[in-house]
Nucleic acid binder design. Structure first.
Length: 471
RNA sequence: GUCCCCAUCGUCUAGCCUGGCCUAGGACAUUGCCCUUUCAAGGCAGUAACACGGGUUCAAAUCCCGUUGGGGACACCA
């Protein structure tokens, strides 16, 4: 069997959509598993909607989720000669003809047909005109077979049969000389040696239009696979009104690329009961047979859970690295530069169990930068009171005589004081928590002290006593 | 309207191809309990589904037909 060659072929008309990422992912996974080739092709033949910014967004998105391509990115606008020469070849072999119908006329006829309840197909009126010297604004149409059936043995849907009577003669070269999608795709897929065309199932009905073109051109027909769509909570096609759909928006919301990949693959594919997969496991275990045939509803809750799992289990240094840009955006650039990567990783370990996103993590981590704590007003009011001041002072006095920080020793010392005072843990823990972090919620106190270090712990305790004495 | 695809808990899904082991499993969400210095995390338990109707069969979530419902496509967009 020859080498697998697959492609991802987005059109650059906006940001990279998460549905697009999933399509790319399935192709990429299959290529990596089969030691095949993954090609990136930009379908920009619609010059009015394509933009360079979109191309950049696509490349950026692909890189962020770690989908590397082996060939490309190719741009269709750089391959115009290929489409034109193959179109002329079809004309010369009698598989295509010039059509002089005006776009407005076609539109009007389509509307008329629809109004009568007929299917809005091209009526084929130029088919037998045998125009050989077309006017400059003529379009070239493919002469589609009108009898028989086109059968697709789909990788995902299985056998799908279309009557050829339902496909009309589609335009392959517009009057401006640009190829249309259904034609340029065929030429590229054939010329690039694509063995498996895997795309969204919104393309399923395009397939019986494309197969006859492969055949007319004398090319081998690739295998096809049509992935089910991603839906919003209301079961309609996922769009902006369901929330963020741009892959980069998820980076900005604090999602880890590994979590996005895992979630997106699991949306429509499964391997028994397993939910979490490493990239390598995905490559090893992927199979078309377990790709779901039906559309799937995008569930932000499950994605959030999965992101939390990745935050908890990924190497802390890696999470810290992803966190840094968000920290800097949040105005902590100087503070971040002042600390070591090792300490940052330690910080991640401190809070990773409570942050479901990196954005949440920024908030959890903020109290540990800088010398002093910033007290939340309500927290200070409740716990740093004149009654707690002497208690805090006693703890401070005991800690001050300890030469260096030791979790065990400091915790013992703390508990001993609680015992001697005959108070509950919380009665001392909460004021200390507020003194150290400025907040009423934080990780375990002694883990906090460890991250803060002896000096800052004592400093903040002192400030806490001061604040408590004030009220 | 025509054509195509699809149908298991609220959601993602296992099971379906190769009927019986399904009293339908897992995960997210949700509810309760436990743990606990706070907030989380974690542990345990609970609620919750084979769309409907006909067949075939000793036996159907699984095979067949129909109905209903959902989605997609019908451009000189991709």
């Amino acid at each position: 069997m020859s080498q697998v060659r697959v492609r991802f072929a987005p059109s650059p008309t906006g940001f990279l959509h998460i549905g697009g990422v999933r399509t790319a992912l399935f192709n990429w996974l299959f290529a990596r598993q089969q030691q095949g080739v993954f090609i990136l092709r930009i379908e920009d033949t619609d010059q009015s909607r394509s933009t360079d910014e979109s191309i950049q967004a696509i490349l950026q998105g692909m890189k962020w989720v770690g989908l590397d391509w082996d060939e490309g990115p190719f741009r269709q606008t750089e391959r115009m000669d290929l489409y034109r020469s193959h179109a002329m070849k079809l004309f010369e072999t009698g598989h295509a003809y010039w059509c002089v119908c005006k776009a407005e006329e076609l539109e009007a006829r389509r509307k008329e047909a629809e109004a009568k309840g007929l299917s809005p197909r091209y009526d084929g009126r130029c088919r037998n005109l045998r125009i050989t010297n077309p006017p400059g604004d003529a379009a070239l149409r493919f002469k589609a077979p009108q009898e028989g059936q086109t059968v697709i043995d789909d990788l995902i849907k299985g056998k799908v049969v279309f009557d050829n009577t339902v496909v009309d003669d589609l335009i392959i070269l517009r009057s401006n000389g640009y190829p249309t999608y259904n034609f340029s795709v065929v030429v590229d897929d054939a010329l690039m040696g694509i063995t498996h065309v895997v795309r969204g199932d919104d393309h399923l009905t395009n397939t019986p239009r494309q197969i006859p073109i492969f055949e007319a051109l004398g090319f081998a027909v690739p295998r096809f696979g049509h992935l089910p769509m991603i839906l919003g909570a209301d079961k309609t096609r996922l769009s902006k009104r369901h929330g963020a759909t741009s892959i980069m928006a998820y980076r900005d919301m604090g999602y880890l690329p590994e979590a996005m990949v895992n979630y997106l693959v699991r949306l429509g594919w499964s391997h028994g009961d397993q939910e979490l997969f490493t990239r390598q496991e995905l490559i090893d275990k992927f199979s078309w047979g377990h790709v779901q045939k039906s559309a799937a509803v995008f569930n932000p809750d499950k994605l959030l859970w999965m992101n939390a799992e990745y935050i908890k289990t990924s190497p802390p240094a890696q999470v810290a690295q992803a966190l840094v840009p968000l920290l800097e955006q949040d105005g902590l650039k100087q503070e971040v530069e002042a600390v070591s990567g090792k300490w940052l990783a330690q910080l991640v370990v401190l809070v990773k169990e409570r942050a479901k996103t990196l954005v949440e993590m920024v908030d959890w981590v903020r109290p540990y930068f800088g010398q002093g704590a910033t007290f939340e007003v309500e927290a200070a009011k409740k716990f740093l009171t004149p009654t707690t001041a002497p208690l805090l002072q006693k703890l401070l006095t005991r800690f001050e005589v300890l030469p260096s920080f030791s979790k065990q020793v400091w915790e013992d010392s703390f508990k001993k004081l609680v015992e001697e005072e005959g108070i509950k843990m919380g009665a001392l823990a909460q004021p200390v928590r507020v003194a150290l972090t400025g907040r009423t919620a934080s990780p375990g106190l002694f883990e906090v002290m460890e991250v803060l270090g002896r000096d800052r712990t004592l400093f903040r305790l002192r400030k806490g006593v001061e604040r408590a004495s004030l009220q």
